[in-house]
Computed example of a mutant assay.
Amino acid sequence: MNMDAKKASESLVVMNELVLPNDTNTFENLMGGRLMYWMDIAGAMSAARHCNSPCMTASVDNLSFKNPIKIGNIVHIEAKLTRAFNTSMEINIKVWGEDSLHQYRYESNEAYFTFVALDPNNRPRKVPQVIAETPEEQEQYVGALRRRQLRLILAGKMSPDDATELRALFVPSKENL
């Protein structure tokens, strides 16, 4: 497998779906579970594009619903890697609704998904690193380590004392005292 680092932009996946009656609840809004399903697909494609292997979802961070997407509107999903670790990758997924009739686009959701690359035996495999080029990609890249540490603490896989990047946000260093 090629382990050369890849640009974050190379992992970009853009997906569009039309909200049909079977996708909605009694308020004629897109069901949250259906949106999460579509986001998971976009994230999996982005992860697989980055590492050239099958991937599985390991976690989903806070998924907040800013604005509902109505029946007949278009769902626009963009997924892109923010950072790769050893065998896992963090992917930022942004969602917009698009009202074609009134010709406007609006924010709906955003979340961070974590995927793990799998080898032919369905065991975790190493992934290429990410090259963050734009200021937004660089900001996402830096923040990814703190988000990862928080995920690991919440999952009971890391002690808060070991989360040095995360602690630096809350505990002043001795030099600053």
Rank of each mutant, 00 (worst) to 15 (best):
D162W: 06
L152I: 11
E90M: 05
T57I: 10
T87Q: 08
V95D: 07
L145K: 14
G43T: 00
N109K: 02
M158D: 09
E107I: 06
W38E: 00
V60D: 00
K94H: 13
E165Q: 09
E136S: 08
S59P: 12
S46Y: 06
K94D: 13
P124L: 00
G143K: 02
A111H: 01
Q140W: 02
N67W: 01
A42M: 10
I74V: 11
M89Q: 13
S59V: 13
P160T: 02
N121M: 13
P160W: 02
Q140N: 08
L35N: 03
L166I: 04
G97R: 14
I77W: 08
E107D: 14
R148C: 12
I41P: 10
E136L: 07
E90W: 01
G156Y: 10
N92P: 02
V60S: 06
W96V: 07
E98C: 10
G97V: 15
A79C: 01
T82V: 09
N62P: 07
G33Y: 15
F113M: 03
R151S: 03
F115R: 02
R148H: 15
E136R: 08
N67C: 04
A48S: 15
G33V: 14
N62A: 10
S159G: 05
E78F: 15
R34G: 04
I153K: 04
T134N: 00
N29P: 00
D162V: 04
R148P: 09
V60E: 02
L63Q: 00
M36E: 08
G32S: 03
L35W: 03
P68G: 07
M158G: 09
L101N: 05
D119F: 04
A58F: 08
D61T: 07
F113S: 01
E107W: 04
M39K: 06
K80C: 07
R147P: 13
S100A: 13
I153V: 09
Q129L: 15
S108R: 04
V60G: 03
P54M: 00
L35C: 07
C51Y: 03
I131G: 09
R83C: 03
G72M: 07
G32N: 10
N121Q: 14
Y37A: 10
I71H: 00
S64K: 14
R147D: 10
I131V: 14
K70N: 13
D162A: 07
Q103P: 08
P124Y: 00
G32P: 07
T164S: 11
A111R: 00
L152F: 11
T82P: 10
I41N: 10
A58L: 11
R148I: 08
P68I: 01
G72P: 07
D40F: 03
R123P: 05
K126Y: 06
D161N: 14
